[in-house]
């Protein structure tokens, strides 16, 4: 097991590093430790932010001294060791409906030809497995997903687009994901989802959290329009399932 490093990030922050790599097991330890810290501490811990391989802890140094917090957290981080995969089975999988190709996915044909596949095969591969949300960052609700098949990996655009519409689903190298709000970017766009990762008007404003799984589901234009209307009315509830034993 890799050593845990605890670093300072200003007088109110500390960072727990579990390793240097983007790795399923390291990320699982990050999320387990985040849950342990949230359950163990009260007001002295303000917020925890899990990322790929580290965890930021914001705390109030006037309520708890750094040395004491570090001591407690070391114990928790070590308790969240490897070999707990069973606890991750039963994690929720959230369906993300996508209309693939056409105007909403202008790069689908390029992704297909680049990999020597048909468009249907790209869609079949992209929708085949659930993707782990390693972390959320960059913009509200932007998921960093892991686990895409190398069969559909495609380099970024040489000339990034200045405006990518919200909901665009794309591929960049071996990464996949979707843009929650309109942004510039160089991803190959293969489709679009009508769902919003962040919706301030909804009762549960965020559709998913880091540690959840997302599965892309191919839908028709008619289904896309129907879901878009439900999202607009704040009535959309995503289909979910439970991840069966391991990944």
């Amino acid at each position: 097991m890799e050593k845990v490093k605890i670093l300072a990030a200003g007088e109110q922050g500390l960072v727990i590093e579990f390793g240097e790599a983007i790795d399923f097991e390291i990320n699982a330890r990050v999320h387990r430790t985040a849950r342990l810290i949230k359950s163990k501490f009260g007001e002295e811990v303000i917020e925890v932010v899990p990322t790929y391989r580290s965890l930021m802890v914001y705390f109030d140094p006037l309520r708890i001294q750094r040395a004491e917090l570090v001591q407690n957290i070391k114990g928790l981080a070590l308790a969240a060791t490897a070999g707990d995969e069973k606890k991750d089975a039963g994690k929720v999988v959230i369906d993300i409906p996508v209309f693939y190709g056409g105007e909403l996915g202008p790069d689908l044909s390029f992704v297909a030809s680049h990999n020597g596949l048909t468009e249907e095969e790209v869609i079949a591969i992209h929708t085949a497995t659930p993707y782990l949300v390693y972390m959320i960052g960059f913009t509200p609700g932007f998921p960093y997903l892991g686990g895409m098949s190398e069969k559909i990996a495609t380099p970024r655009l040489a000339q990034p687009r200045t405006k990518i519409p919200a909901g665009s689903v794309g591929i960049a190298g071996s990464q996949t994901g979707f843009y929650p709000i309109e942004s510039p970017g160089g991803w190959q766009l293969i489709g679009r989802t009508p769902v919003k990762a962040f919706n301030a008007c909804s009762q549960s404003p965020f559709l998913f959290e880091a540690g959840d799984y997302l599965r892309f589901v191919s839908v028709s234009q008619a289904e896309y329009d129907k879901i878009a209307a439900q999202v607009e009315a704040g009535e959309y509830k995503p289909a979910t399932s439970v991840l069966g034993g391991g990944v």
Binding site: A9, A21, V49
Partner: peptide, 10 residues
């Protein structure tokens, strides 16, 4: 680095 959290004043 592998992207991680940014605190105020970082």
């Amino acid at each position: 680095i592998v992207s991680d959290a940014l605190c105020l004043g970082a």
